[in-house]
């Protein structure tokens, strides 16, 4: 099964609900075959942006091009897109086979063709033995795969995925991340993926679009965003634990309004360093430890250390930012 991959171009796209502007003028180019992730906090408009591309919402202004064709006013089914919903949205009264073939049977395609396409999708997604079950007899991960199968049989130019992993437990989520990345390689299709989870964004994306309050904050590859965030918002959003962002007089003393340093770029010492503080709390994760250091000069700093050896809570420690790793905004 090969889906023809296509580009998606958004020009000055905007959407308002009444007087509330949700999307405030977005320009974006998504290359053919790219795995593009929209990421941002709740309410930043990322799901609305996806729904605009899908056609479930009408744009207030601006244009949407898919595969070089302007589809701003086209019906969702005519845009060459397929969508996977957060809730999976499987039809409860239909079997897996009928769920996957629903769109084709609506289009009155011959039975043999529907069956062939359903089988092809089922074999890619390992759904073969489940085809005659109803959705309620499936596990979360299986439902997820059925939802993806339903998208695949449409041979879409673009896959739209709206937080597809957020209903799964942590272990399954990690597994599905890898499966989705594999699937993307296998199909070679353009995929647009919405999530609020920066780990998903970092691990899966070719291109991350960070959204904030209806605007694009930054677009780039995961490592570009990690290494060169353009704003404190992006810097704080990408990376876990989150970057230390210091504002106020402490930042002014360093010649900026916001001073940022990642927890992994702070070196800890018990004898000397740039900032002195008392360790408030330690989280030991086994492979690494996260320390919360209360300093006078910089307020609370989060420090990430490899391994399990670190000073006890309550002791005095010093930290030094690694040269060339700090950000001044």
């Amino acid at each position: 099964m090969t889906a023809s991959s296509s580009s998606v171009v958004l020009k000055n796209l905007a959407k308002s609900f009444g007087a509330v502007d949700i999307i405030k003028g977005i320009d974006l180019v998504i290359e053919p075959g790219e795995f593009c992730v929209f990421v941002g906090p709740s309410g930043c408009g990322k799901s609305t942006l996806l729904r605009l591309i899908s056609g479930l919402e009408e744009a207030t202004s601006g244009t949407i091009e898919i595969a070089g064709r302007v589809v701003t006013d086209a019906e969702p089914s005519e845009r060459g897109i397929a969508m996977v919903f957060q809730s999976y949205a499987l039809y409860p009264h239909l079997t897996v086979r009928q769920n996957i073939g629903f769109g084709l049977s609506l289009a009155k395609r011959p039975k043999a063709e529907i069956e062939a396409k359903v089988q092809a999708a089922a074999s890619v997604l390992q759904l073969g033995p489940l085809l005659d079950r109803k959705p309620k007899a499936l596990s979360g991960g299986q439902r997820q795969r059925v939802a993806i199968g339903r998208a695949m049989v449409r041979d879409p130019a673009v896959f739209l995925l709206d937080e597809p992993l957020s209903n799964l437990d942590a272990a399954l989520r990690a597994q599905m991340r890898i499966e989705l990345t594999d699937l993307h390689k296998k199909l070679g299709a353009t995929m647009i993926y919405v999530t609020h989870d920066q780990v998903e964004a970092m691990t899966m994306a070719d291109k991350i679009v960070v959204l904030n309050a209806g605007r694009i904050e930054q677009v780039g590859s995961p490592m570009e965003l990690y290494n060169h965030p353009v704003s404190p918002f992006v810097a704080g959003f990408i990376g876990s634990p989150k970057m230390n962002l210091i504002t106020g007089p402490a930042a002014a003393a360093l010649g900026c309004t916001t001073y940022g340093i990642r927890p992994e770029h702070l070196d800890l010492s018990t004898t000397e360093g740039q900032w002195q503080g008392r360790i408030r709390h330690v989280e030991r994760l086994g492979a690494e430890s996260v320390l919360y250091l209360q300093t006078e000069a910089m307020g609370e700093l989060v420090i990430r250390l490899p391994g399990q050896d670190c000073p006890a809570p309550g002791s005095i420690a010093f930290v030094t930012p690694r040269a060339g790793r700090s950000f001044r905004f």
Binding site: S77, Y91, L106
Partner: peptide, 25 residues
Amino acid sequence: PRDLDEAAIIDGAKPLAIFFKVILP
């Protein structure tokens, strides 16, 4: 859930088809 209506719209269902094939059953 409204998602079901929207999934059917994406699958190319017209309003009558959504009602008779998805909602009514």
